[in-house]
Design a protein around this nucleic acid. Structure first.
Lengths: 224, 224
DNA sequence: TACAACTTTTAGATTAATCTAAATATATTT
DNA sequence: AAATATATTTAGATTAATCTAAAAGTTGTA
């Protein structure tokens, strides 16, 4: 095993991570504006950084055409995401944080540099495959487990799904789910579905209640 | 409990920490050169930063006279040190790192910002009073336990001491101690002491061996 | 006390990351 | 295809942290 012999700044790592996520959503190049929006920064700042990352061979960049990660860049992005998600597991499993409280802290911890540290942490946590929001944790090689999952909104009346993750992971949404006793592993039955607006009545732990399509569009479930 | 409503940069925190340590060694103001040396930086850089920290009321600074932490500055420094040492305990106790491997990682972790995190970590670790090198961990209020300790070099022939810490904690020194089976809690008996150069023969776990004064000058022991 | 030696500060540059405003390229719509 | 709208880049500033070189202050000693 040989170490990465270059040092990425926090800012560079954040750009690679953002581009990695954007590539998953839309195939091909990622646009300057898309990056700027996802990072809450200005397009001109993105151009600068993307040019710098292109020089470092972290991505391929063509003026006005957007960016695409190289293997090198993808590996580093996956590594940052690996660290983020492992730390989230640590915070929830070991320090008893709630799943809606860990994001900001993990944003900081993901930049700690030590391969040894993260591999030991991984072992300490029992080599988890998913983080507390159901997102897959890349392994040392940057590979993550894929699961068959669909959105709750795709289920039909009377179908049953097990909650395996969330699409949105804002504090408000997670807190809403908590209030309704929905977390990873929760069994959800679709009792009724309104054609007009896609809203649903679902059963969770013997209780029936109404949810909007927005909610159903942000919950991942697994069906048998 | 109210939060600190200002944000310190990593560089600022490192300066406060360094000045805190220097104040312990020498009473009164800490000189620009002393800070520069301890931080491996240039005096001119120190002047700049010290002026900035003075504006932020973290320390009192008089041109050509050096710096002295205010209560505010001392509190932040103690907090950084608290975090550093708690993370060291975590690394050694939970992730099975060796005491000579944790410093660089803790240097990074000490800047993670979250009061909640560090207090939960403290509880998770069982609210330890000392780090793996025997250094006291400040509590939430910035107060640390003081111990009656002396240098091994102060002991006379036939005196017995329990190792409670190290003055130097460089990797080389800690590795030397490991090789000799000396760690926190180890019982050390002075079998002989040379007046000429202060070197000693000591007994550790039924084995006698020779140590130089340099070694004895960097080991803290507690006598009964 | 005067000068030499040392310490400290100032002035002016540099690098990284960001921004605003202006210029340029691409895309969309008549 | 021309005009308009949108996206992207460039140019020039700004802030934080650092440096080098030069200037200024302090101290110790002959």
């Amino acid at each position: 095993m040989h170490k990465l012999n270059f040092v990425m700044t926090f800012a560079e790592e954040n750009y690679l991570k953002a581009i990695f996520h954007l590539e998953l959503e839309s195939q091909g190049e990622v646009s300057t504006n898309a990056i700027a929006e996802s990072m809450e920064t200005k397009p001109s700042s993105v151009t600068d950084m993307v040019q710098k990352l292109a020089e470092k061979k972290m991505l391929v960049y063509k003026r006005y055409k957007g960016a695409q990660l190289t293997e090198k860049g993808r590996k580093i992005a996956a590594d940052v995401i690996r660290k983020h998600r492992l730390w989230e597991v640590f915070l929830v499993e070991k320090l008893n944080f709630h799943w809606d409280e860990v994001h900001d802290i993990a944003e900081q911890l993901e930049h700690i540099k030590s391969e040894e540290l993260i591999n030991r942490l991984d072992d300490f946590l029992g080599n988890p495959d998913f983080d507390p929001h159901g997102d897959p944790i890349p392994n040392e090689q940057g590979v993550m487990k894929r699961t068959e999952k669909k959105l709750l909104s795709e289920l039909k009346k009377n179908q049953i799904g097990i909650c395996v993750g969330v699409k949105e992971s804002s504090g408000e949404f997670l807190q809403y789910l908590d209030k309704k006793n929905i977390s990873i592993g929760t069994r959800i039955t679709v009792m009724g579905k309104e054609f007009f607006d896609g809203s649903m009545v679902i059963e969770v732990q013997n209780e029936n209640f109404f949810i909007s399509k927005t909610i159903a569009d942000n919950l991942y479930v697994q069906t048998s």
